[in-house]
Design a protein around this nucleic acid. Sequence first.
RNA 1: GCCGGCGUAGCUCAGAGGUAGAGCAGCUGAUUCGUAAUCAGCAGGUCGUAGGUUCAAAUCCUAUCGCCGGCUCCA
Length: 579
Amino acid sequence: MNMTIDLDKYRHSTAHLLADAVLQLFPGTKLGIGPAIENGFYYDFDRDVPFSDADFESIEAKMRDIVSRDLPFERQVVTREEALALFSSLGQDYKLDLINNLPSDEEITVYRHGDFVDLCLGPHVSSTGELGVFKLISVAGAYWLGDEKNPMLQRIYGAAFATQEQLDEYLKKLEEAKLRDHRILGKQLELFSIDEQVGAGLVYWHPNGATIKREIERFWEDEHLKRGYDLLSTPHIAKSKLWEISGHYGHYKENMYIFPVGNEEYVLKPMNCPMHLQVYKSRIRSYRELPIRFAELGTVYRRERSGTLHGLFRVRGYTCDDAHIFCSFDQVEEEIGALVEFSQYFVRCLGFENLQIELSLMDPAHPEHYIGSPEVWERSQATLRHVLQSKSLEFIEIEGEAAFYGPKIDFQLIDVYGHKQQGSTIQLDFNLPERFDLKYVNSSGGEEYVALLHNAILGSIERFMAAFIENYGGAFPMWVSPVQVALLPITDAQLEFASQIHEELKDSGLRVYLDDRNEKLGFKIREHSKVPYQLVIGKKEVESSCVSVRHRSRGQIGTMTSSEFKSLACEEVQNRVIS
RNA sequence: GCCGGCGUAGCUCAGAGGUAGAGCAGCUGAUUCGUAAUCAGCAGGUCGUAGGUUCAAAUCCUAUCGCCGGCUCCA
């Protein structure tokens, strides 16, 4: 028996329970759809009065009442006419809409329990008595059939599990996740702020957050230089002409910040690609130079819709870690292979082991949505697939997810909420080389179009840092920690010795904080509980010229000289240990 | 952009027509302390912003900005 399918059935049946309860309590409500989802279910309702959290109690009570009546679920096959008649008599317009959109040869089934009837494919549990482990979570707006031109319905989300323990565990996990929320930690640890006075979606990195960001960026630069990339630095604004050539002005205009300067019009860059292409184009390129690998930590600005902003995950100005590789077509496979290795290596070094790899392909039903010939697509997609297979990587293929300009490989990080977060992306581009006329001179002196690869390992440093902060719950790996070592003198009699150690450790490049406040040791330890190492300095330590080393998760490690500690700490930093 | 909820001290929140309150943080003082919260005192707010209703608005209404949960979007 497949547990996943079983649980889906359970959740879907619970959704029916919810709809039944709502109809009993609020007659006249129209039903949308109510599927099983990860961790539970939802059901969409059309009702004039908004549901409030206060309604949840009575709805849940009614649902439990239906459970206790142990009503059997009954499947019934009906003709299209019967179905239309049934739901039209019930005034369920959205169901009529669904029926009318079903393929003509589709068998139509309805499921009943008690007086409740719903258009539904099933399957369901056999009786409402089997249900009962659920909790309504939230209500939110959702467009009918996901189209913003359609009316907006009210969606009630619920959690449902096979056992009460699993439900409790899930609810507990939600609570715990709140404590790791990067927006909360960002404030507590003074990592960053977003000031409504100055603009939504614009991030201010405070000293602590800026330190983490700088360390990650240094690592990023080091690793790119090691792999034969040249680092660029390009302007933040450019005349509209550039964006007309790139095509952004036609397709992406509503997301761009555009402003007049004299008689000219400028654009704040939403992407770095055109800039990098300009550098490529600055002179004739020879096949001998290929592959050329350009990379930049470029700050870009995009006018994202107001409702989509979300902490650091979705902002309007961010650092894009952009790389572009210009190569010949027969170098593509090798370059892609290197990019896949690089991406995986990089995010693993930052503590992300759980990756989901997606290969995004064109939609074969709509070749007209894409540029480039079907043969080129076919060959490129096969190349990407072959790279992943040759590395024995598990991946899923998604048709229709490709960009219009080429197929891509995406790496999804899994965050503490279990949500996927976009990580690395590797994209083939059939569009820009032609638009920008990017060529090189081949070995026989002829001109050829260059192949263009886009690669972003982190995508957005800001977005990545949100996931990074949550992944570590604010207790960062030693090498990125804003404070790596906290010095905790027990009384002010040890201040002088502590200051000496402070200087000594600082000189070796460590980020050290001397807590010289007149507070008790326990208080200081608590305050620095996220700092990797806390050095306790009391009377005994001064007398023996030592420090008592305490690690934030391993507890007391022992007493050692400052130079012994220094080499231990520096080694951990140099090796970029991630624990 | 859309639906719903919410904006009160640096932070977390209480107050629900009668003139603003707690804890933590901060400051001052006392305490000199051995591995996750020492005690006391002081100070701190045009209640997001702008209008309106009212004798009186943090509280009711309107608009606006922002935040939260989703939807949509992410050439």
